[in-house]
């Protein structure tokens, strides 16, 4: 136990703890909107597009964020608008785009000989969090939480029924863009700690667990955030104890919470 507590005196562990907690809370809060609007798969699609962009950055030897941030934001817009226009085709579009992106990413990193550095992105690493990532996480979290407080009534309305919102004269495209950008940014930030293969679980699982206990949207958002925070801290500890990647530990912790709630709450 002492060894574990000692871990938290290390700078990088503390950074991972703070940044990871903030990112977890934000992914799960956005996750509520994404799950209810049936965009659950978007995190999966975006992170694989993110992986491709990371491979390109590694091959060209330029900072990852410079390529991945704009490309993931762009992908997020495209996926949201394709799903909206061709209502049923959303999941298909995401699945196709993400597997193409993953294949491209693998090809680029194999050809450029950067497999070892990019493969750490697949599983994520707490070592990946730099000082700047921490600052960026704090700023982004504040933006996301503020957006949820200021736009709560709107997000509720648009998540429930976008057409009705439009009939009231509300510009739903603005909110769609807002959700797309915030999702893209949080995925870019979160995928390096959680792993590109696992970030979508961190988006979806807390919202699914929270639905077991929440009777309205507001509670769903709050409970989802709390569950995600608890699961992140527990998962991080798990990952230290068993010496496995943090993202995997967080997903297992989230899964345990889901199972417990499923058993306890009828």
């Amino acid at each position: 136990m002492n060894e574990i507590l000692e871990l938290f005196t290390y700078q990088f562990v503390l950074r991972a703890l703070i940044a990871g907690s903030l990112i977890s809370v934000c992914t799960s809060v956005l996750g509520v909107v994404l799950v209810l609007k049936h965009y659950s798969l978007i995190g999966h699609g975006l992170s694989e597009i993110g992986f491709a962009s990371l491979s390109i950055a590694a091959a060209l030897n330029i900072p990852a964020m410079i390529i991945s941030t704009p490309s993931v934001i762009l992908a997020s817009f495209v996926i949201m608008f394709v799903s909206q226009r061709y209502k049923t085709a959303g999941d298909i579009a995401i699945a196709i785009a993400s597997s193409i992106a993953l294949a491209l990413g693998i090809i680029i990193s194999s050809l450029s000989g950067s497999v070892s550095s990019t493969s750490s992105y697949l599983f994520g690493s707490v070592l990946a969090i730099s000082q700047w990532d921490l600052v960026f996480s704090i700023v982004l979290s504040l933006v996301i939480i503020a957006a949820f407080i200021v736009f709560y009534n709107r997000l509720f309305l648009i998540t429930y029924n976008e057409d009705y919102a439009r009939s009231l004269g509300i510009n739903t495209t603005f909110y769609q863009l807002l959700i797309s950008i915030l999702t893209a940014l949080i995925v870019v930030l979160g995928m390096r700690i959680m792993g590109t293969l696992l970030i979508s679980g961190v988006i979806i699982l807390p919202a699914v667990s929270a639905r077991k206990v929440a009777s309205d949207f507001r509670m769903l958002v709050i409970i989802s955030g709390v569950i995600s925070f608890v699961a992140f801290v527990a998962g991080l500890l798990l990952s230290f104890v068993f010496n496995v990647p943090a993202g995997a530990g967080v997903i297992i912790a989230n899964t345990l919470i889901l199972i417990i709630l499923k058993v306890l709450v009828k």
């Binding site: 209810l36 509720f156 998540t159 009231l168 309205d216």
Partner: peptide
């Protein structure tokens, strides 16, 4: 709209007062 959406009647009714 999703019939199983987590929402109470009061909140749904209130959304009718939203405008641009």
């Amino acid at each position: 709209a999703d019939r199983n959406f987590p929402a109470k009647v009061r909140e749904i009714v209130l959304t009718g007062t939203q405008r641009k």
